[in-house]
Amino acid sequence: MAEKPLLSVRNLTMIYKTRKGPVSAIDDVSFDLKRGESLGLVGESGCGKTSVAMALLRLLPDNAQITGGQILLDGTDLTQLSEDEMQHVRWKRISMVFQAAMNALDPVYKVGDQIIEAIERHERDIDPAEARRRVEALFKLVGIDPKMADRYPHEFSGGMRQRAIIAMALACNPDLIIADEPTTALDVIVQDQVLRELRQVQKQMGMSMIYISHDIAVIAEVAERIAIMYAGRLCELADAVEIFKRPRHPYTVALMSAFPSIVGEKRPLVALGGEPPDLLFPPPGCRFHPRCPRALDICKQQQPPFEDIGGGHYLACWNPAPMVEVQS
């Protein structure tokens, strides 16, 4: 038996209750995350990536309901904790780098004070000067002048705000950081710097990370393992290299061929036809079958199991693509 995972998500299922009926946003999602490991979660908009992140922190909107499965953090099932106990998990154990860093800082408080607020929440007896020193150290770590701690969010540039948000996420030295498209709002150059810093800090401090993005190129830079999500379900999960070299799920294959490669041969980009399904009425069987070029009859009737096909490569497909090396 390998080392026990830090986080183990087991058959997680969540719905949004709407007036038209339940929307099946997360369906039977399972994955493990080791300590210090970095997992990329890829999928198109609306596939449930952010819902997974919010479910881990139990910060779902009122109409959301976890209807099944477990979220085991060091063996404790987070879905069973009370709101009060959950507050102590948030930030102390699992913190988050937000999608919209522009707006994730409260405009009326100094940035440093907002980080100190988080530290003081989880370390009641900390000396204010000590908290202050930690904020300055964090700012140095993410490459911001420590003096900026006394400034307000509107005095920060976009990249600085994103770095401040990362500093905030590190403040309580959590076991797991969830980064939800943290660089989408930044220009490519700043995006690259921030990514590198985030990855470096995560490795240095030995934290686990779940990195969520629709951009597989970004994921490739930060993740050791990659999970592909489609319409609320995981369709493939494997080592980053494996996913890029030997994708098996037709959806993964389609994703790969939709991205241009700089170093590889020139090849035409293939766009995937059709649209993601309406999760109010998800298609029966495999949710990808209406768009799948390899769909069989069984795909329309039965949901394929999400199983290890060898070497930690998980796959949910009745008719996987042949094992060919894809050049990238």
Binding site: L59, R90, W91, M96, F98, D106, R121
Partner: peptide, 8 residues
Amino acid sequence: MAARAKGL
């Protein structure tokens, strides 16, 4: 959302 995520 961020304030809630901080466990406040």
